[in-house]
Amino acid sequence: MINERNTNSALEKYNLFELMQNDALAVIALHSFTLGYHIIAKNRKSDIVFPKIEYLFFVLPIVYNYSAMLSFLNSNELYTALMKEHSILLGLQERAYKMTEQTYDGLNLAFSKKILNIDKDHGTIILQRPYTTKKLVLAMSANTSYDSVKQIQDSAYKLGSIFAKKHDKNIQNDLNIRF
Rank of each mutant, 00 (worst) to 15 (best):
Y37S: 11
Y64Q: 02
K45N: 12
L138E: 15
R178E: 10
S161N: 12
K84G: 12
F50V: 00
M20D: 03
A164R: 05
I115D: 00
L11H: 14
T133F: 08
Q153W: 11
I125P: 03
K52C: 09
Y37R: 07
N74Q: 06
D154N: 12
L35A: 05
K98V: 03
K114S: 00
S75E: 10
S32R: 08
D154E: 09
N15H: 08
T124I: 06
M69D: 00
V149S: 13
N117T: 02
L70I: 03
L136K: 05
E101L: 15
S148I: 13
Y104L: 15
S155T: 03
Q172D: 14
H38A: 07
N15G: 03
T144R: 15
I152P: 07
K42E: 13
I39S: 03
I118S: 00
L138T: 13
E54M: 08
P51D: 11
L19I: 02
E4Y: 15
K166E: 15
K114L: 00
F111E: 05
E77F: 08
T132G: 06
L107A: 03
Q128A: 00
A142S: 07
S148D: 09
R44G: 08
E77T: 14
D105C: 11
Y146I: 09
T124E: 04
I152K: 12
A142Q: 07
I171M: 10
E54L: 01
N22H: 14
I115Q: 06
Q151H: 06
I171T: 04
V63G: 05
M20H: 09
K135G: 14
M20A: 03
Y146L: 13
A26Y: 02
K42T: 10
A110F: 06
H38T: 11
V149H: 11
S67F: 11
D121R: 04
L73Q: 10
Y157T: 01
S46F: 04
K166I: 11
K114P: 00
L90Q: 11
A142K: 05
A24V: 10
A10T: 09
I28R: 04
Y66C: 08
D121A: 14
N170D: 14
V27R: 08
V63Y: 02
M99S: 03
I177T: 06
Q172H: 14
K134I: 02
K120P: 01
D47G: 00
F33R: 01
S46H: 13
S112H: 08
T7G: 00
G123A: 12
F111H: 05
F72I: 11
